[in-house]
């Protein structure tokens, strides 16, 4: 175990001194401060909301700490892991440290723990900064319950960032060159933080079309087929009736819309970013009710309820983390160790 500690200590001091880490840290701190402004603005506009909304803002608002993590979380974790093994291999230092009385797994363990520590430092400081600057902005601080929720949310954020670290570590074990693993990391980042939500929307709209479909249904319901529409006036009147139909028969429209949204959510569930977003909202107690169910969207759940409702997402996230780490483990233990290949 001495080996793990030694490696961990070196890697951690490498991280904390690296331009890469400091740059990301600075970026996230600056953006977090901005997110604290929009968050506290939101709380002022919605007096019902709890202190913890500072991290979530409104669900539809495009700028919150959670959103920041969805967008930048992957790149932070990946950046700390993508070259962990392959850089040592090409440089030739891997065979040197493997010639010391340590086991091969100590290297992975040490590097992973150091990465998690660096990520924890980042998560704890940004959450702390946001909480700290929000208090004077709002004029009040978090209650005991809020502090507990924020603590749990911080742990969740660390878990979430560690997943990307583990993915990066896997890439660095799989590939020989850092150029390949950096490309893989960037693709992964783009896919999970940006592309997947666009894809999910596209697929959901294709499978369960919302507005257009109900429009056609209406047209057919009025015993008028598309072929019967001769001119623009007909079209316009058909469209008008669609509108009135939608207003009167809202339930059907709502149904298809909800179905669409559910499908979109299901597709997105393969992404840790989405799971993190969902679990964060539960843990912070800012979950919105179902679609169109009016009322107060912040029917604050008890903390214990929040924890149990976020449990499925947390479990999946943990499983993803373990799977990635175990894969790099198995790969690395079987690999031939040679400089440059």
């Amino acid at each position: 175990m001495a080996g793990v500690l030694t490696i961990c200590r070196k890697e951690l001091s490498d991280h904390l001194g690296s331009k890469r880490y400091l740059l990301l840290f600075a970026l996230i701190v600056v953006l977090s401060v901005l997110s604290a402004y929009t968050g506290s603005e939101y709380i002022r506009d919605n007096p019902n909301s709890s202190f913890t909304s500072i991290f979530s803002g409104s669900m539809n608002s495009s700028f919150s700490f959670i959103y920041l993590m969805v967008l930048f979380g992957p790149i932070i974790g990946l950046a700390l892991g993508f070259d962990a093994i392959n850089r040592e291999r090409t440089r030739g230092s891997l065979s040197v440290i493997l010639s010391q009385p340590i086991f091969r797994d100590s290297i992975l363990n040490g590097k992973f723990i150091a990465g998690v520590a660096a990520l924890s430092l980042l998560a704890v400081s940004t959450v702390g900064i946001i909480t700290g600057i929000s208090i004077p902005m709002l004029g009040y601080g978090p209650g005991g319950e809020d502090i507990l929720r924020i603590g749990l949310f911080t742990l969740l954020t660390i878990l979430y960032l560690s997943i990307w670290l583990a993915v990066g570590l896997l890439f660095s074990t799989m590939t020989k060159s850092t150029t390949t693993s950096i490309l893989m990391s960037i693709s992964t980042w783009l896919f999970f933080s940006i592309l997947i939500s666009i894809l999910a929307t596209l697929v959901a709209n294709a499978v369960v079309p919302v507005e257009v479909a109900s429009g056609f249904q209406m047209v057919q319901g009025g015993n008028q087929t598309m072929g019967d529409i001769r001119d623009l006036e007909d079209m316009a009147s058909a469209f008008n009736r669609t509108q009135t139909f939608q207003q009167t028969e809202t339930s059907e429209y709502m149904e298809s819309m909800e179905e669409n949204a559910n499908l979109e959510a299901t597709i997105q569930k393969i992404s840790p970013t989405y799971l993190y977003e969902e679990a964060s909202q539960s843990l912070l107690g800012v979950t919105e009710g179902g679609f169109g169910q009016g009322g107060n969207p912040f029917q604050a759940l008890e903390t214990t309820q929040s924890v149990s409702s976020s449990w499925p997402q947390v479990t999946v996230l943990a499983v993803v983390l373990i799977a990635c780490f175990a894969s790099s483990y198995m790969l690395f233990l079987r690999q031939e160790i040679r400089a440059g290949g």
Partner: peptide, 18 residues
């Protein structure tokens, strides 16, 4: 591990922390 305690090696193409 015991072997690596009593034996040292300078591997082919070995490198250092620059």
């Amino acid at each position: 591990k015991q072997v690596r305690q009593i034996a040292g090696m300078m591997p082919e193409g070995s490198g250092y922390y620059e």
